[in-house]
Design a protein around this nucleic acid. Structure first.
Lengths: 94, 94
DNA sequence: TAAAAATACTCCATAGGTATTTTAT
DNA sequence: ATAAAATACCTATGGAGTATTTTTA
């Protein structure tokens, strides 16, 4: 399970449309489809209902959308902060 | 960047020893070494100082150790909860 | 010399692409 | 017929292993 897959999921969860989401993720519709399937399989959780014409979030999908959004935001903050610490560290010791 | 890499990092951050950590992660010392390098490279942040005889956390490493530990714990909770929702969902609609 | 991390080399799994198929409108 | 998701097939990248090298106590 990758951070990238979670980001793909978040985009699809907002767009609810594979083609449009594929454009936003800069991968093909086919790759996106398989990444989402692979995420669902690894979680053992169905995230979307696809009835060939429509994509919508399941209850679990809605839940994870909210949680993942916060989590990814925090992750990015932490990484930015860690980068700052690295600079301080390099100034001090190298 | 994968969840697995973060888990590897957390184990090494506790053990501060590649060989012992490799045993706990169930991969080889060599793979672990490369996974950590790859994580550091992707983050653009040095997480450990290795002076050939010792492994210790940098300031950024210490910071991320704390943050990642919480985050991985939350992630597991969310996944357990999502699984429960899936069961309710299946009972209702299938 | 021994202990410990990094690197070289190989193999296999998987991410991604294009093309095609399936299905509902 | 069109739109949209899934699947088949192929290639390239990267994760994992074993063996080896490097480095320092």
């Amino acid at each position: 399970m990758t951070i990238q897959q979670i980001k793909y999921f978040l985009i699809l969860a907002n767009e609810l449309h594979f083609w449009r989401s594929a454009e936003k993720t800069f991968i093909s519709q086919s790759s996106l489809s398989r990444q989402i399937q692979s995420l669902e399989q690894e979680l053992g959780v169905q995230l979307f209902e696809r009835d060939k014409r429509n994509v919508k979030l399941t209850d679990a999908g809605k839940f994870l959308k909210e949680k993942y959004a916060v989590l990814i935001e925090e992750l990015d903050q932490y990484h930015r902060h860690a980068k700052k610490l690295t600079k301080v560290y390099l100034d001090r010791y190298q």
